[in-house]
Design a binder for these strands. Sequence first.
DNA 1: CTCCTTCATTGGCGTGACCAACATTGGTTG
DNA 2: CAACCAATGTTGGTCACGCCAATGAAGGAG
Lengths: 146, 146
Amino acid sequence: MDEIPRRLTAKPSWLINQLSVHSRRLVSDAFAAAGARGYHYRLLAALHESGPASQAELGRRGRVDRSDVVAAINELAAQGYVERTPDPDHGRRNRITLTPEGARRLRDMDDVLDQVQDDLLGPLSAGDRETLTRLLGRVLAHHEQG
Amino acid sequence: MDEIPRRLTAKPSWLINQLSVHSRRLVSDAFAAAGARGYHYRLLAALHESGPASQAELGRRGRVDRSDVVAAINELAAQGYVERTPDPDHGRRNRITLTPEGARRLRDMDDVLDQVQDDLLGPLSAGDRETLTRLLGRVLAHHEQG
DNA sequence: CTCCTTCATTGGCGTGACCAACATTGGTTG
DNA sequence: CAACCAATGTTGGTCACGCCAATGAAGGAG
């Protein structure tokens, strides 16, 4: 009676969007339980991987709009995971630095996310997971550049 | 300089969510150009596939919250794609019916969506598309029941 | 020196997915 | 039959995310 129309289930765009609903819920529930948001993880990850940077640069690395970076960095700074200092060499720029607590926070969030991946991919074998990841990566890369 | 951290690109949840951003944009841009929204298509599809139903039932079929169904049906009714009449057999229930214009609208939207699938899957071969669709379907089905 | 760009920040928008409350009505059960 | 529970339509929010416009300050290029 409440079956999903074939028109929908046959379309990759539907599958991706709908699966993303579940994925987002898993991720944000898991993060919320730790008092965090997705934006926090993205920015911490960008910071850890390429080192201190301006807010604009962090936003570019983590695919976060610079206006949203402001609020997220505010929150991270208030929790002591990040330090915001004026860039001495560059007038208007802020220099964002990862604190030791921030690095630990990132590791904790990584553990949380690893668990989420497992819940998300549920019934898939290791081989299928790899195949899915590879295909998604190729499609995403195609849209990231164009 | 603005490279995406491996921590992100390696995670299926990131790939799915990020790809969903692109997918949603393609879909909603295409629909917007025709004066429609995603909810409209879902409800029309549910109507066409299983016949006239109450708003609550349509929402269940198309995975739309019942409070959001109200607004979408308002819009569809105002455009003449759907008719809302009180269910004679059932006091509080509304009976939603697809009009001939609604059926035509659905077909037009289908054409739009087919084009979107092509843009979305971009560089993938037919075989890869089939593999991706199958894997996504399995994962989604797993989350739809639990 | 002027122009164009970059940066941080504020404030806003739209979408999609929800949730709570309410009045009403149908169905179920004691 | 009466009392209760479930479902329905509706209003009016909330939240995360992605994005856009404008602004003031500052750097770099010509």
